[in-house]
C-alpha cells in the first residue's frame, strides 16, 4: 500500500473509511490531541503507535464520540460524525474496543456476545409484547450467529461459561468476536494484545488478519512492536498529540524522528 514514509499523515488515499481532520482536544492546560489529521484506507490494517501519553487513546475517544473535540472533524464512510453520541457513531459502522477489557457481570459468554448484534427487534420494549414471534426469530438467529462467531475464534467451548470467569486473553477474543457481531465497517482496537501471553497474542494476530481478509477495515493501537510489524500497513506514529510520520512498518521503525520521539517520549 504505502510505499514510502511521509512526514505527517499520508492523505493521498482513494477510498477511506475514516477521515480525521485537524482534531484538537485539551484537558485543562494539557493538549492531548493537537491538530491531528489522518485517514484509514478501506481494507487496510492501520496501526496507531506512539510513546505513552502520545494521545492515542484520546484520538480513539474523539473518533468514537466518547470525547467532544475542541476543533476538527471526523468522517466515517463520508458521513460527518463529529459531535455525535457514541452509539450514533457506532450505528455509522465504527465499532471500538477499550484498552482495559470490560467484563459483563452475571452474564454468560454468549449473553455478553448477544449484546453486540445491532438492529434487534427485541430491544424495543413494545415489540416484546406486540411481536414476540419476530423477537424470537431474531434472537434465534443471533444466538446462532454468536455461537458460530465463537467457533470461528476457537472459543466455542466457552459459550455458556460465566463471562467473569475468563482470562484476560480470552476476554480480548470475546470482545473481538462481539465487535464482529455488530458488523462494523471499521473496527478500532485499543491495545488488543496488552497483557496477553505470547501464544494467545499470536492467535489474536491471526484472527485480526483473518478478519481483514474477510473485508473488515481495522485501525489499532499497540505497543507490541513485533505485533505491529507483522500485521499492520501503514503505521501512523503519533507524538504529543499530532501525527509525526506515516509509512510502512520497516521504514517507520528506522526513522530517526520516530526513534527520538520514543527516547524523549515522556518529556513533560
Amino acid at each position: 500500500m504505502s510505499e514510502t514514509l511521509t512526514t505527517g499523515a499520508n492523505r493521498e488515499k482513494d477510498d477511506t473509511v475514516l477521515e480525521v481532520e485537524g482534531l484538537h482536544k485539551a484537558f485543562g492546560g494539557l493538549v492531548a490531541t493537537d491538530d491531528a489529521s489522518f485517514a484509514v484506507e478501506r481494507g487496510s490494517i492501520t496501526a496507531l503507535i506512539g510513546p505513552n501519553g502520545a494521545g492515542k487513546s484520546t484520538i480513539f475517544n474523539l473518533v468514537s464520540g466518547f470525547y467532544e473535540p475542541d476543533a476538527g472533524t471526523v468522517r466515517v464512510n463520508g458521513t460527518d460524525v463529529t459531535g455525535m453520541e457514541p452509539n450514533e457513531v457506532a450505528t455509522e459502522g465504527l465499532i471500538r474496543t477499550f484498552q482495559t477489557p470490560r467484563k459483563l457481570e452475571g452474564m454468560t459468554v454468549r449473553e455478553a456476545m448477544l449484546v453486540g448484534a445491532s438492529d434487534q427487534p427485541g430491544e424495543s420494549f413494545l415489540k416484546l409484547f406486540t411481536d414476540p414471534s419476530g423477537v424470537e426469530a431474531a434472537e434465534r438467529a443471533n444466538i446462532e450467529d454468536a455461537h458460530e462467531m465463537l467457533e470461528q475464534f476457537e472459543i466455542g467451548h466457552l459459550a455458556t461459561q460465566p463471562a467473569t470467569d475468563l482470562s484476560g486473553g480470552q476476554m480480548k477474543l470475546v470482545e473481538l468476536a462481539r465487535a464482529m457481531l455488530a458488523e462494523p465497517e471499521i473496527l478500532l482496537l485499543d491495545e488488543p494484545v496488552a497483557g496477553v501471553n505470547p501464544t494467545l497474542a499470536n492467535k489474536l494476530s491471526d484472527h485480526i488478519a483473518r478478519l481483514n481478509e474477510e473485508g473488515v477495515t481495522l485501525c489499532l493501537i499497540e505497543h507490541d512492536m513485533e505485533f505491529v510489524m507483522n500485521l499492520a500497513d501503514p503505521v501512523i506514529v503519533l507524538d504529543r498529540g499530532s501525527v509525526l510520520v506515516e509509512g510502512p512498518s520497516e521504514a517507520v521503525r528506522n526513522d530517526q524522528r520516530v526513534i527520538d520521539a520514543y527516547l524523549g517520549g515522556d518529556s513533560a
Binding site: S64, G65, F66, E85, P86, N87, A90, T91, I95, R96, T97, F98, R102, K103, L104, E105, G106, M107, E111, L114, V115, G116, S118, Q120, P121, G122, E123, S124, F125, L128, F129, V135, A138, E139, N142, R178, A179, A182
Partner: peptide
Amino acid sequence: RVHRSPWGRVLRTIRSDEDLASALGKDTY
C-alpha cells in the same frame, strides 16, 4: 419477559458498563 429479552440485556450491559453499551451502538440514554 422484559428481563430475559434483548431489551433487558441492554439494561444489564448498561449496569455493568455503560460505555460498552454505547460503543456497541445502544442508545443508553
